[in-house]
């Protein structure tokens, strides 16, 4: 791990360019009525997909996870896995209510 591995200045700039463009796209796309054009929830899906892509780039390259040990990968994955548990099992209740209060 003590090897410093990274993608060098051009690489960092490349990642930045991606993030920059993705931010512009997400803004522009959010103003279009994708729900109407494709299917309900399309806007949400696209916005989150872009956010995930951005996050992945930051995690892999800015945070150097790409070159880290399996353990670090596991820390990252388990963080999100537990978040998913919380979402899934909470929604499992809300989405299956026959009567939803108020």
């Amino acid at each position: 791990m003590s090897e410093h591995q990274h993608i060098g200045i051009p690489g960092y700039l490349g990642v930045f360019a991606f993030l920059f463009i993705a931010t512009i796209i997400t803004y522009v796309v959010a103003l279009q009525d994708l729900d109407g054009m494709f299917f309900p929830g399309a806007n949400t899906l696209v916005a989150l997909a872009i956010a995930f892509a951005k996050m992945t780039f930051v995690v892999l390259f800015f945070m150097h996870v790409r070159w880290q040990s399996r353990l670090i990968w596991m820390a990252v994955v388990s963080g999100f896995f537990w978040l998913a548990i919380m979402f899934a099992y909470t929604l499992q209740d809300y989405l299956t209510r026959s009567v939803i209060g108020y």
Partner: peptide, 29 residues
């Protein structure tokens, strides 16, 4: 690492809080 993490949180906050539902302004359904 900490700084990037805080950035990532914002990467999600931005669409969730600012963008979702904005297309209704665009004349929507």
């Amino acid at each position: 690492l900490y700084w990037h993490f805080v950035d990532i949180v914002w990467i999600f906050l931005f669409p969730l809080l600012y963008l979702l539902g904005r297309h209704f302004l665009a004349g929507g359904h």
